[in-house]
C-alpha cells in the first residue's frame, strides 16, 4: 500500500458508490423544499432567510455525506494495512475527506443557482453564497470526519454523529451566513471570510489527528 494507491482506490470507490453522494445532495434539496412549505413561501421571507436555509441544508447534508466514510475501512481491515505499511492514518483521513468533499461540492455548486432562484435569493448575493460554501464546507467536512471516526464502529451512527458534531458546526454556520449578510448590507465581509479561513486552518490541524486517534482505538 502507498498513499497514491490508497487515494486512487478511494477515487474509484467514491465514484462506484456515487449514489451515496447523490443521496446527500438529494437530502440537501429536500431540506431546502421543507422551508418554503413548512415556514412561509412569501418571497420577502425567503429572500432574507435563503442564505440561512441553504447553509442549514448544507450542514445537514455534509454530515450525511461523511457518515460511514470510515466504516468500511474499519470493517475490512484497511486501517490495519495502512499502519502495516508505515502510512500515517491522519494523512489518509485527510485525503479521503478531501476526495469526498470534491465529489460533494461540485454537484452542490451546480444546484445552488437553482436553489437561489427557488428561495428568492437576491441575485447579487449568489456569488457570495457560493464563496461562503467553498470556504466553509471543507471545515464542515473535517469536523464531520471527527464524528464519523468516533462512530465508525457503530451500525447506526447518524443521530449520534449529529449530536456531537452540530455544536462544532456553529462557528462556521455563523460566520459564513454573516459574511453573506454583510455583503447584503453593503459592508465588506472580508473579516468574516478571514475568520472562516482561520477556523479552517485550526480544524485542518486537529481533525486528522483526532480522527487517527479514534480510528486506532476503534480498530483495537
Amino acid at each position: 500500500m502507498t498513499y497514491s494507491s490508497i487515494f486512487l482506490s478511494e477515487w474509484y470507490l467514491t465514484f462506484r458508490r456515487k449514489q451515496d453522494i447523490a443521496n446527500s445532495i438529494l437530502f440537501f434539496l429536500v431540506v431546502i423544499v421543507l422551508f418554503p412549505i413548512g415556514v412561509s413561501a412569501s418571497p420577502s421571507f425567503l429572500a432574507s432567510a435563503s442564505v440561512g436555509i441553504i447553509w442549514c441544508a448544507a450542514s445537514l447534508a455534509s454530515m450525511l455525506a461523511l457518515d460511514g466514510i470510515f466504516k468500511e475501512d474499519l470493517r475490512d481491515g484497511s486501517i490495519d494495512q495502512w499502519r502495516m505499511n508505515g502510512l500515517m492514518v491522519s494523512i489518509i483521513v485527510l485525503g479521503k475527506v478531501l476526495i469526498r468533499w470534491g465529489a460533494f461540492i461540485l454537484p452542490l455548486l451546480v444546484l445552488i443557482p437553482f436553489c437561489g432562484v427557488a428561495l428568492s435569493l437576491p441575485e447579487d448575493l449568489m456569488f457570495e453564497t457560493i464563496v461562503s460554501l467553498l470556504v466553509g464546507t471543507p471545515t464542515l467536512f473535517l469536523l464531520a470526519a471527527i464524528g464519523a471516526s468516533i462512530t465508525a464502529s457503530l451500525r447506526n451512527s447518524a443521530v449520534l454523529m449529529t449530536l456531537i458534531v452540530m455544536p462544532l458546526y456553529l462557528p462556521v454556520l455563523i460566520f459564513s451566513t454573516g459574511y453573506v449578510k454583510a455583503s447584503e448590507l453593503g459592508v465588506s465581509g472580508i473579516g468574516q471570510l478571514a475568520i472562516l479561513a482561520a477556523i479552517f486552518l485550526i480544524v485542518l490541524l486537529i481533525s486528522p489527528f483526532f480522527c487517527a486517534i479514534s480510528l486506532k482505538a476503534s480498530a483495537e
Binding site: 458508490r17 468500511e72 481491515g77 502495516m84 505499511n85
Partner: peptide
C-alpha cells in the same frame, strides 16, 4: 512494521 506482512481475518480487500 515495514519488514512485516500481516494478513488478518479482515484482510484489507475492498468489496467494491
Amino acid at each position: 512494521l515495514k519488514e512485516t506482512l500481516y494478513i488478518g481475518h479482515n484482510t484489507g480487500v475492498k468489496d467494491n
